[in-house]
Design a binder for these strands. Sequence first.
DNA 1: AAAAGTAACGATAATCATTGTAATTTATTC
DNA 2: GAATAAATTACAATGATTATCGTTACTTTT
Lengths: 140, 140
Amino acid sequence: MMNYISMLKEHGLKATFQRMHILEVIGECGHKDIDEIYAEVIKIHPSLSLATIYKNIIIMGQSGVLSEVPVVGKKSKYEIVKADHIHLICTHCGSIEDKHTSIDSENLLDQLAASEHFNLDKKEINLYGTCGHCQNIKAS
Amino acid sequence: MMNYISMLKEHGLKATFQRMHILEVIGECGHKDIDEIYAEVIKIHPSLSLATIYKNIIIMGQSGVLSEVPVVGKKSKYEIVKADHIHLICTHCGSIEDKHTSIDSENLLDQLAASEHFNLDKKEINLYGTCGHCQNIKAS
DNA sequence: AAAAGTAACGATAATCATTGTAATTTATTC
DNA sequence: GAATAAATTACAATGATTATCGTTACTTTT
Ligand SMILES: [Mn+2]
Ligand SMILES: [Mn+2]
Ligand SMILES: [Zn+2]
Ligand SMILES: [Zn+2]
């Protein structure tokens, strides 16, 4: 649980309860696309407009509150900005798991960027495959 | 330069010249989105339909000829399937550069997946930042 | 506290992106 | 070079995203 009010204000955004609802859904469920966020949010706040979700996803993205996770063959997911991490993306059930491993590959990627005179802002590592749960289902 | 006819046939696809044009554009230019492919391809073959591009991007993707490169804030790019590699994506000019470095992080990621009982199919590593060229422009 | 000013919201229209349809054309096989 | 199945095209239909504008909710000023 987090304080979304201060999170929004620190990024210069008004803390409307529409934004709060959006952040709560993303914060609890992890990685959600626009439609999933909308479906969740109208359970609590049925009058909230889909256009409001689009506008706020964009503005919270630009402000550094949310980050986009583009996924092969799917709509982009959105998550609260956090430290760099790796995604395990199951192509069967669509689940996305964060892996905050302090894997040493980070340094290697920093070195690679430096050697290419590339000014690195963000590292994105996504592993696609089959999660343990879906492997068991297939085996049965 | 490559032989796209055999590439298509090996994947069980008819070698139409529409597909050849699409592959030539992607093969020469590297990473292109649907609209860029269309714009290039109609220079040579003006009657080629945009719907044909959509359908062939999908079918060549499913057949393993093309792979999708989703990009934050942009339409997905497509490239010819090749060995795993890293992308340097410039957020200023949009350029995408391949880096076929045999970086050791690959093994680390394999190990991570194995330790999570995750059956790994594909590794995606994208580095976002500013390319050398765009850094020079800003400095001037 | 009322008024004024500003930012955000909601409904819906408009636009843009993608997919489906059906008639025609093309590539492959014999 | 026919037969056959698959692919292409033009366009309709659908789906996704953005723009508009009147309304609402906050904030600041009298
Ligand atoms: Mn994540
Ligand atoms: Mn590439
Ligand atoms: Zn799964
Ligand atoms: Zn650049």
